[in-house]
Design a protein around this nucleic acid. Sequence first.
RNA 1: GUGGCUAUAGUUUAGCGGUAGAACAGCGGGUUGUGGUCCCGUUAGUCUGGGUUCGACUCCCAGUAGCUACCCCA
Length: 444
Amino acid sequence: MSKKKVKKFYLVKGFKDILPEDQLHWEFVRSKFFNVARSYGYDRIDLPILEDSKLFVKGVGNLTDVVSKEMFTFETLGNEKVSLRPEGTTGTVRAYIEHGMVNRKKPVKMFYMGPMFRYDKPQAGRYRQFYQFGLEVFAEEDPIIDSQMIYMTYQLFDELKIPVVIKINSIGCPKCREKFLKTLKDYLKKNKSKLCKDCQIRYNKNILRVLDCKEKKCREIVLEAPQILDHLCDDCNKHFVKVLEYLEDSQINYELDPFIVRGLDYYNRTTFEVLPTEEFCGGDSGSQNALAGGGRYDYLVKNLGGQSTPAIGMAFGMDRIVNALKKVKDLELSNINTSDVFVAQLGDKARKKVLVLFEKLRRAGFSISESISKTSLGQQLEEANRLKTRLALIIGEKELLDKTVLIRDMESGNQEVVPENKIESVLELRLKSLDISVKKVRMR
RNA sequence: GUGGCUAUAGUUUAGCGGUAGAACAGCGGGUUGUGGUCCCGUUAGUCUGGGUUCGACUCCCAGUAGCUACCCCA
């Protein structure tokens, strides 16, 4: 025996498989998203994974980390420079403009779901291909939309049984931000030498980011720093006050957090992030714990060549949410892989019969399963047991001759012989008496 | 991109400078016309490449991968 080693093929770094055993959780999250989005009047849109690189450079901003060092960018055979989308908002805006959605009934509400790609160093809760669910509302400036989105988010996590806190801030409009940046710069100038190395760089490059530096010495300085909330212009201030007003008296667990600065250039006014509560995380919070985030982007549509259109949107990190969901204790996932009836066979003729019977019952709407490649009855019933199937149909030589079917209750072990032509009605009766809804349609 | 930690069957893991052991899962059987429990059998492993050594899974170095902190973000 030669011990030749076959070279293994590894997953590409930062990419992962979502295995069958994880699909219940994913399915659960997806279906909650769909339900909530649809009930709030959002329509689905599916966008390409590949877009013109320029779109992201212009939309997200070429100074952002996401665009400047985290994009999968390459040239096609036709020399087009394209990128795997790092986020969903920009593409949605492109579609909004490209399909003349300005002319649609306002507001235009859409949701999307799919993989995003960022060339980041992978670690807990961070992958190079990850999945986002996103909501976008176009052509509505009213602050109640901001509040409703936060409201919706809270409902969603409530249904998922993941306790969260929503951190809210307003970063104003370009006008008030400009003024604020000056004030901030003046303040930090005095303390510049005390800031960490990174912040020295940020001071010149993106001074806002100094505000959410985690270094102790920076935090101390930042605590005393002027806050954008105190420097909003009248309009922005009014808008934000309204947003908060609408949230008053709600059950929503939210906090004002003046340090929520988003990393994408297009944001303005209301911004927010969703974090699991500390009690829920226990000790191992991990630093990649933002489950969702978003905000207004009132200038993006115009910036990408459309008419000036106010807009707001947010994205949910599905991988992280699924991860959090696994920590939820009293979670009841309806197993889409279970069935009510199992068909077993013995002998080649019976097998052939079952091949057809299975299809007949399936079409009649029964939730049914089989293990037709197995020959021993023991193995088949074992499978029925594993699938937690309540009833099993058994067909062997004897039943073939008599034109009957044996129905076995897997829990009590009781068996009854039923004429072949009455299978469906008897099955229906038995299931009903077991309080199992008959002809259930598999949830997708 | 900068640090830290780790690497043994599919999974979780034990171990020793000289034969790598278990549990779970899988497969087969006890029981080819009756599942769960139980019993028996069985498949399968030291990340890769160097070095030290009579001998390395063990010690050293490098690579790779995973985890993790920073960064960034979802």
